[in-house]
């Protein structure tokens, strides 16, 4: 193997002024990684339910605790945020929305929309079923 040549590196994250689109990009990656963990949690929950009442009780004790509910609420927001932010990516993939104004509007829509939609899902979830 040939040894690596030390070439000059381009400036990285820390030298740029933070912008909304940049923060959104970092958050898209962060929520993607968080959802990875969330999918594992979902596998545990499904397996616990399939295992029977005893296994399920352990899972329920966790997910029903304040910490578990917080994690689940966080998972909901992460998925909704990543979804809306992802739709932004798909719009860009199709070649639209690259103007300065459009990029900003799309990003703001996704950021605000994620909070609104997350709350709506929890309200609907509780209205249709949920703890009583």
């Amino acid at each position: 193997m040939t040894s690596r040549i030390e070439r000059p590196l381009s400036p990285h994250l820390q030298v740029y002024r933070w912008t909304l689109t940049m923060a959104m990009s970092v958050l898209h990656r962060a929520t993607g990684a968080a959802l990875y963990a969330g999918t594992i949690l979902m596998a545990w929950g499904l397996l616990a339910a399939a295992a029977g009442p005893t296994g399920f009780a352990t899972f329920k004790a966790f997910i029903g605790s304040w910490f578990g509910l917080l994690v689940l609420f966080g998972y909901t927001w992460a998925l909704v945020y990543h979804l809306l932010s992802g739709i932004r990516h798909l719009i860009w993939d199709l070649g639209y929305g690259f103007g300065a104004q459009e990029r900003f509007a799309l990003s703001r829509l996704a950021a605000i929309g994620s909070v609104v939609l997350t709350l709506a899902i929890w309200v609907v979830g509780f209205a249709v079923g949920g703890v009583r």
Partner: peptide
């Protein structure tokens, strides 16, 4: 991209199902 669109179509219904399950006992779940 293909999987993103797939999950995107399923995400909201799945999240509502999960929230609906909260607090239910084993039999109901």
């Amino acid at each position: 991209r293909v999987t993103a669109v797939g999950i995107g179509l399923l995400a909201i219904p799945v999240l509502v199902i999960i929230v609906m399950l909260l607090g239910r006992n084993h039999a109901a779940t």
